[in-house]
């Protein structure tokens, strides 16, 4: 199934400025999606995204425009055409 991804708030810098993309995954949880992003999409500073399989604090996740904390976080089961937005809350300003 196809998952749409958006990166913003400075997080796109880890993906060479890529703001929007999509990936094809098998039935999987959000946790596995993050691992896939880490191994296949990130071009630099991997440690700023995941550490010990946990998302770095300060990165906000929206699942179809809804806070992931309301959706079961890492255990959320992805559906076809889900949109996952990842926003960094970098400092400054």
């Amino acid at each position: 199934m196809k998952i749409n991804l958006e990166f913003s708030g400075g997080l796109e810098l880890l993906f060479d400025g890529l703001k929007q993309t999509s990936v094809v995954v098998e039935d999987s949880s959000l946790k596995n999606l993050f691992k896939k992003i880490e191994s296949e999409l990130i071009t630099q500073n991997k440690e700023l995204f995941l550490k010990d399989e946990k998302l770095r604090p300060g990165i906000l996740v929206l699942i179809n425009e809804s806070d992931w904390e309301l959706e079961g976080q890492y255990d959320y089961q992805l559906k076809d055409e889900d949109t996952i937005v990842l926003i960094s809350t970098l400092h400054g300003g």
């Binding site: 708030g9 400075g10 906000l60 929206l62 806070d67 926003i87 809350t89 970098l90 400092h91 400054g92």
Partner: peptide, 21 residues
Amino acid sequence: YEKEIVMYAYFKKLDYFSTEC
């Protein structure tokens, strides 16, 4: 909270600059 501010900016589609010094 910082989270509320970032969420607000996201949903209101505000134009902000996000690079660290």
